[in-house]
Design a protein around this nucleic acid. Structure first.
Lengths: 153, 153
DNA sequence: AGGCAATTGACAATATGTTGTCGAGTGAGC
DNA sequence: GCTCACTCGACAACATATTGTCAATTGCCT
C-alpha cells in the first residue's frame, strides 16, 4: 500500500470516527441539555484560563466565528453561559459560564472520563499520543498547503 | 498525561482535522461541480465493485441512508449519477455513475493523489497505517460501547 | 398462503457548520 | 488627529448530517 493509499484510508477513517464521536458525545450529554457541539463550546470557555470572546473561542476550537456564535446564542438562551461586557472592546462581549453551565460541564466531563477510559481500554497512552501527533502534523501540512499555491493548481 | 487525557486530545484533534479535510476536499473539487461529500458518494459507488443501492452506499460510507439519499438526488440532478432499476428489489434502485460522473471522479482522484502525496511528505507510510488502525480500533470500541449498556449509565 | 420483522426510499424537522456580506469598533502608522 | 487595515458580531443563504416517521417491499417462518 502506497503512502497515498495509506493517507486516503486514514482520511476516510477520520470522517467515520468524527461521525461516531459526535454521536457518542450527543448520547453522553443528552439529558444534561447538551450536545457534542455545545459541550465543546463550554469546554473551550472553561479551559481557556481567561474570558474569551466569541471569535476567541472559535479560534480555540478551530471553527468559524459564525458557528460558535450560533451555539453561544443558544447556550445563553438556555442559561449555560452569559455575555459579559468586555472592558477592552465595546462590541466583543465575553462569554462566561453561569453556575448551570459550570455544573453541566463538570457532569459531562465526569462522564467523558469514564467513557474515554472504557473505550481506550487496551490502547497504550503512547499510541494515542503518537496518533494525535500525526494528525496534528497532517493538519498543519494541510493548512500550509491551502494558503500556499494549492488554489491555483 | 493520562490515557484519558491522551484520548481527549486525540478526539479534539479528530474534530479539527475533519473540518480541515472537508475544507480541503471542497477546494480541491469545487470547479468540477463536486464537494467533499458528493465526491465521497461517487467514490463509494465507483469502488464498490458492484452496483449499490442508496442504503448500501450509506453503509459503505458510514453515514445514514437519508444523508446519502439527499446527495444522490442532487448528484442525479447534476447528471453525475443515474438511478437504474434493481432487478432484485422494485423499490431500491441502483445508483450508477454516468459518463460525467466517471469523468469528474477520475479528475478528483487524480488531484487527490497529488494533494495527498504533498501533504504527507515526510510521513512514513507505516505511521499513517498505524494511526488508521488505532482510529479504527477506537471506533469499533466506541460502537460496541454504544450498543452495550452505555445508554443507561 | 399468510403473517411478520427487517430493509428501503421518501419526507419533515432539526442540528451543525461553511461562505459571504455588512456595519461597528480597534489600533497602528502617518 | 486621521486614515486604513483588521477584527468583531450580526444576518442570510446554503451544505451537510442526524433523528423520527411512514408506507412499500422483501424474505423468512410457520
Amino acid at each position: 500500500m502506497s503512502r497515498v493509499e495509506a493517507a486516503t484510508a486514514l482520511i476516510l477513517e477520520v470522517f467515520r470516527l468524527n461521525g461516531a464521536l459526535l454521536a457518542a458525545g450527543d448520547a453522553l450529554t443528552r439529558d444534561l441539555g447538551l450536545t457534542s457541539a455545545r459541550w465543546q463550546v463550554l469546554g473551550a470557555v472553561a479551559l481557556a484560563g481567561r474570558p474569551l470572546t466569541i471569535a476567541g473561542a472559535a479560534r480555540a476550537m478551530g471553527l468559524t466565528r459564525q458557528a460558535v456564535r450560533r451555539l453561544v446564542t443558544e447556550l445563553a438562551g438556555d442559561g449555560f453561559v452569559a455575555l459579559a461586557p468586555n472592558p477592552d472592546h465595546r462590541r466583543a462581549a465575553l462569554v462566561v459560564l453561569t453556575e448551570a453551565g459550570r455544573h453541566a460541564y463538570a457532569a459531562a466531563q465526569e462522564r467523558q472520563a469514564a467513557w474515554a477510559a472504557r473505550v481506550t481500554e487496551g490502547c497504550e497512552s503512547d499510541s494515542l499520543r503518537d496518533a494525535t501527533t500525526l494528525l496534528r502534523r497532517l493538519r498543519a501540512a494541510l493548512e500550509r498547503d491551502e494558503e500556499s499555491g494549492a488554489a491555483e493548481a
